[in-house]
Amino acid sequence: MKHLLPKLLIFMIILLTAPSAFAEQTKQNTSELAHEAKSAVLLERDSGKVMYDKNSHEKLPPASMTKVMTMLLIMEALDEGKIKMKDKVRTSEYAASMGGSQIFLEPGEEMTVEEMLKGIAIGSGNDASVAMAEHIAGSEEEFVGRMNEKAAELGLKDTSFQNTTGLPEKGHYSTAYDMAIMAKELLKYDRITKFTGTYEGYLRENTDKKFWLVNTNRLVKFYPGVDGVKTGFTNEAKYCLTASAKKGNMRVIAVVFGASTPKERNGQITKMLDYAFSQYQTYPMYKRNQIISSVKVNKGQNKKINLVTSEPISLLTKKGENVESVKKEIKQKGDIHAPVRKGTELGTLILKKDGKVLQESPLVAEKDMDQAGTWTLFKRTISDWTKWNE
Rank of each mutant, 00 (worst) to 15 (best):
residue 280 Y to A: 03
residue 65 M to F: 02
residue 114 E to S: 13
residue 275 Y to V: 02
residue 284 P to N: 02
residue 234 T to Y: 13
residue 163 N to R: 11
residue 363 L to K: 14
residue 8 L to R: 14
residue 357 V to T: 12
residue 207 T to L: 14
residue 301 Q to F: 07
residue 152 A to I: 11
residue 264 E to G: 10
residue 362 P to M: 02
residue 166 G to L: 01
residue 281 Q to F: 04
residue 266 N to Q: 12
residue 51 M to P: 00
residue 54 K to E: 07
residue 337 H to A: 15
residue 82 K to I: 01
residue 178 D to I: 11
residue 292 I to T: 07
residue 230 K to F: 14
residue 229 V to Y: 03
residue 307 L to W: 01
residue 356 K to L: 04
residue 69 M to Y: 02
residue 154 L to F: 02
residue 387 K to L: 05
residue 259 A to C: 04
residue 359 Q to I: 15
residue 91 T to N: 01
residue 102 Q to H: 15
residue 142 E to M: 15
residue 53 D to I: 05
residue 90 R to W: 13
residue 155 G to R: 04
residue 75 M to Q: 02
residue 260 S to T: 09
residue 300 G to I: 07
residue 54 K to W: 01
residue 265 R to G: 02
residue 361 S to D: 11
residue 149 E to R: 05
residue 37 A to K: 03
residue 191 R to V: 11
residue 348 T to F: 00
residue 49 K to T: 14
residue 190 D to L: 08
residue 93 E to T: 10
residue 140 E to Y: 09
residue 372 A to I: 02
residue 373 G to Y: 10
residue 41 V to E: 05
residue 156 L to F: 03
residue 262 P to R: 11
residue 383 S to P: 08
residue 249 N to S: 07
residue 5 L to D: 09
residue 162 Q to F: 04
residue 110 E to D: 12
residue 378 F to A: 07
residue 22 F to K: 15
residue 61 P to K: 09
residue 277 F to M: 11
residue 65 M to I: 11
residue 262 P to V: 10
residue 332 Q to N: 12
residue 188 K to V: 13
residue 19 P to I: 05
residue 14 I to R: 13
residue 66 T to L: 02
residue 50 V to F: 03
residue 16 L to I: 15
residue 167 L to K: 00
residue 258 G to E: 07
residue 37 A to Q: 06
residue 262 P to I: 08
residue 324 E to Y: 11
residue 302 N to H: 09
residue 270 T to G: 05
residue 178 D to T: 09
residue 202 Y to Q: 10
residue 26 T to W: 11
residue 141 E to W: 08
residue 111 M to C: 00
